[in-house]
Every structure is written in C-alpha cells, then in structure tokens.
Amino acid sequence: MFEARLTQGVLLRKLLDSMKDLVQDANFDCSSTGFALQAMDSSHVSLIHMQLRSDGFDHFRCDRNLSMGVSLNNMAKILKCMGNDDVLTMKAEDQGDSVTFMFESANQERISDFELKLMDIDSEQLGIPDTDYSATVKMPSAEFARICKDLSTIGDTVLIAVTKDGVRFSTTGDIGSANVTVRSHSNVDKPEEQVVIDMQEPVALTFALRYLNSFAKATPLSNQVMISMSKELPVVVQYRIEDMGHISYYLAPKIED
C-alpha cells in the first residue's frame, strides 16, 4: 500500500507542469525514502531527476517499493482539476493497476477523487556520477527563465560562460546576437534575489535553448535556481523544493564540429 498526503497539493501540479514537456511517460518510484522520478527525454539529450523526501509529506506510507508508470500529460490533466489550496492524497495498492488522487478543499466542504490507470513502462535507470563542478551559479529562477526566453528570440543555442566576476549568457542567430551578463551580488534582506558564483575555474559551455526553456517551467517551484557546470560535462539545473527535495535537469552540452 502506498499513501501520501500533501497539504500543499499544488506542489505536485507544479512538478508535473515542469516535466511533461520533456518526458511523455515515466515511472514514479515510491519507497520508504520518498517519491522520485528519473527519466530522459526521447532524444537522450536531457534527463530529469525529481525527488520528494517522505518526511516532507504530512503523511507517508509505503509498505513495499512501488513503480507507478504514468502518462505525465494525463496526470497533469488530472492535477489541473485540483483547487489551488486543496490537500492532495495519493493512494495505490501494491499490485494495483491505478493510482487515486484525492483532493480536499481547505474547508473540507468538497472532496473529489480521480483515478488514473497505470502503465507498464520500461525505464532505463542511469547512474549519475558524483561530480565536483568547476562552477556553480545560484541565481533568481525568474531571472534565469527570462534570460533563456529573451535569448530564444535571437538564437537556438546559448553559450554560458562563468568567470569570477559573473556569468555571461550569449547567443547569435540570423537576425543578430545578444549577451546578458549577471554579476554576483548578495542581498541580506532578500536572499532570493542574490547571485552567488562559486568557481574553481572558469568554464564555458554551449547548450540548446529549447531544453533550458523547458527546465524553466520549474520556476514556480523555487525562487532560486542552481546551475552547475564542468568542462565537457552535462550541466545540472537544479530547483530546490523547500523542506521536501528537488527537481534537477541534466543537459548534454553541444560540441563544435
């Protein structure tokens, strides 16, 4: 039996909205540690790793490890039927072929349940090596989203270059070119607005903007985003989910022909 109750049910809707553009079908892995998902997009260029710890839920029970295969799009459609302030409870039997989502309004006056059929999905688990990254940038997630969106009006790829002074996002395209530089700065009163650059050595890598714009769908989950890069390695774009876990996206760099 799997049962998980989340007072802030809207969190799961935001998570689904941040994954469904990249991956169609995926397995949610439920265990005593929590609720997790690892999935690659169909072209094997990007990977999502999402983890919600069991202690972040108001109630969490998972008697045995369970893999729930779902269409992320259909699950997102169901979660759209949940009120913004609703409490969410997920339930699934160990050998069952469905998962139930129960939505309770804050005043308990409306209770609804939606059942989603599960699917058998062959998933490939990838081993992600622990890496000491050359550079890690923490910045406001909305700023990162804006930069990716703005640069997409000019080009398809972005060169992200980190130096100790700042991080520069550059693109070129048929109509011209664009650069945005974000400098490190601290803000004691508003930590969510600060930009922190932790750099061992300068690093510059090129990525497809299309994927970064998909990752930015996670912006409502966190005020800050952490971008970790090393030479010739996939970038990690991580959004921490307060008191619960994270959603991390890995994206393979582009290389010069």
Binding site: V45, A208, Y250, A252, E256
Partner: peptide, 14 residues
C-alpha cells in the same frame, strides 16, 4: 553549427 552531445556518453546505464 555545434553538434549535440548525447547523455548516454556521460552516464552509464545501471
């Protein structure tokens, strides 16, 4: 145009 790397080149299948 730069070539797109693939994640399989970096992460091993478990």
């Amino acid at each position: 145009t730069p070539l797109q790397n693939n994640l399989d080149e970096f992460f091993a299948l478990i």
